[in-house]
Write a protein that binds this DNA or RNA. Structure first.
Lengths: 216, 216
DNA sequence: AAGCTTCTTGACTGGATGGTCAAACTTGAT
DNA sequence: ATCAAGTTTGACCATCCAGTCAAGAAGCTT
């Protein structure tokens, strides 16, 4: 008799970890997309599985077939987000032109706000609540990277390539100014008219701002 | 027989609206303070009456003796916040020195972040969720004020008193930069070391930034 | 088509949570 | 001290919500 095939099903009680079938891949993505929509506007506690299920067009038990729990969905979203959150800062090149590098970093962050506003709001929600789920990420990954780039900017400043300004506050200012357009989009829309995009005119403004700020 | 005294008690089922006794005034304030703490970090849905009651050192039914509902507490907090939120911008004086007026506005907003970070986070939470409870405030009070001051700044720019920059984005930048220190304090603390204040060095940095930005 | 695996869901459970209520306790005016 | 008003709370209820389960439907593989 032939040796029994290893069962492809996971042991009862745990959702599929890695997508195996076309259906799995598709539905996990649908769920994550719906969950991002709901979590980013209502926060973790404010979101319900029923909302996410409705948004995804699936039944609640079906959600829990693909993910172990509400928390697991949220963790997966955060993990995927953090994976790419550092990239723009990582790209800052010590060999490049200082002012151009910083301007490019600002522009990359602004693009994130334009292309991934929900992700930005998901992140903002986490920080507002004291960053309990991403504290280790911030301490162990973000902080060293920021320290590293801050040192780089400080060296640029002493070399006279950019103005002498606190590099940490410089980085914070880029975060604040770019993420504001995603996180506070509702407010901006109500003030400037909901028809036009919140980011209209943002890039020229920020270009002018950082050009003037960085000039030695 | 003497005419019956008007009962001081409100009709059953509704909490006291205006504080009458010392106890009322004191306990309503204690509750609002506790609620601000809890709402500002967990958001409306994430906060529970039990949490607020524990924070206030009162029992849950006692909370509901002073306020009609969880929602009523939240509304009261928002109302009090919004009452003072516009003041710094209102204070901007058309007769004053343009650059000094804008710098002073920025400084007043920074003071709000320093002195009322919880209020700032409560506000941020509302906006993140799409500003459902304060939409009319934004449209009917904030927007006209911003339009008014933006026009003023535009006139300053055409008169050559300040640089030619989009006044709306200028205002948004002040909001973003100042509120960031309150709303993202958790992140800043984890990056700069939790011992020092998030706002250390913020004022000189922002002074430098806006001095360079506004110079005609 | 058969037979197995994967996928889907209606009906349910247990715990959390906003809110109620009646009874007890405290306070202050007389 | 008395008594009426104001204050406090333990016990309770109804609803919401994350998560379970067993049974059925849809896909694959042969």
């Amino acid at each position: 008799m032939a040796p029994p095939r290893l069962p492809t099903a996971q042991k009862s009680g745990s959702a599929p970890k890695a997508p195996r079938s076309r259906i799995q891949k598709r539905n996990r993505q649908i769920i994550l997309d719906a969950a991002l929509e709901v979590f980013s506007t209502h926060g973790f506690r404010g979101a319900t599985l029923d909302q996410i299920a409705a948004e995804a067009g699936l039944s609640k038990p079906n959600l829990l077939y693909y993910f172990d729990s509400k928390d697991a969905i949220h963790r997966e979203l955060l993990t995927r987000l953090l994976d790419t959150w550092l990239d723009p800062l990582r790209m800052m090149n010590p060999e490049g032109d200082p002012q151009a590098e910083i301007m490019a970093y600002m522009r990359r962050k602004l693009e994130l706000s334009r292309d991934f506003p929900r992700e930005s709001r998901l992140f903002a929600n986490e920080i507002l609540q004291g960053a309990p789920r991403i504290e280790s990420f911030i301490r162990n990954e973000l902080r060293p990277l920021v320290d590293n780039k801050a040192q780089l900017m400080a060296s640029w400043a002493t070399a006279g390539k950019i103005a002498r300004i606190d590099p940490y506050h410089l980085i914070f200012s880029i975060w604040a100014l770019t993420q504001h357009y995603a996180d506070f989009a509702a407010q901006i829309g109500m003030i400037r008219g909901d028809d036009q995009d919140a980011l209209d005119g943002a890039e020229p403004f920020l270009n002018a701002l950082y050009t003037r700020l960085l000039a030695p």
